[in-house]
Design a protein around this nucleic acid. Structure first.
Length: 117
DNA sequence: TAATTGACCGATC
DNA sequence: AGATCGGCCAATT
């Protein structure tokens, strides 16, 4: 698989995250079939075209923190978007832990849209 | 073309 | 709770 295909998969997985749900970069990577591609998820999101409307704000760090520095504009934006979906953000941290494997979210993801194979 | 950077992760201390 | 370290690999310099 080449780099472009990875991006596609990543976008597909992220796009399949339901509203008011969050996922860590690593979890997205795994769902996309990349073993340890958390950073590639980040890179892919950066390169994601707006017209795809990728819900990048539903992707957080593994510990539930927002991936931007607090003073950055993106940080505030992400907070805003998350709260608009009912997600509680407290002190740079999200109320619920990022879904890892074996969660309901994963079932949701694997059931319809984001099948890596 | 080679080196560096980065919206990261998990283990360890 | 935090801080360090090695690994991963696309994008940028």
């Amino acid at each position: 698989m080449d780099a472009n295909e990875r991006k596609r998969r990543i976008w597909r997985v992220v796009g399949a995250i339901p509203p008011s749900q969050v996922m860590s970069y690593g979890a997205v990577a795994r769902s996309a079939g990349l073993n340890r591609g958390a950073r590639q998820v980040a890179a892919a999101l950066q390169a994601a075209p707006r017209e795809l409307s990728v819900p990048w704000h539903r992707v957080l760090r593994a510990d539930g923190r927002i991936a931007f520095p607090e003073d950055s504009k993106n940080y505030k934006k992400q907070c805003e978007l998350l709260r608009a979906e009912g997600v509680v953000v407290k002190n740079g941290r999200v109320k619920v832990n990022p879904n890892d494997d074996k969660s309901e979210l994963d079932k949701l993801l694997w059931s319809s849209a984001a099948r890596p194979l």
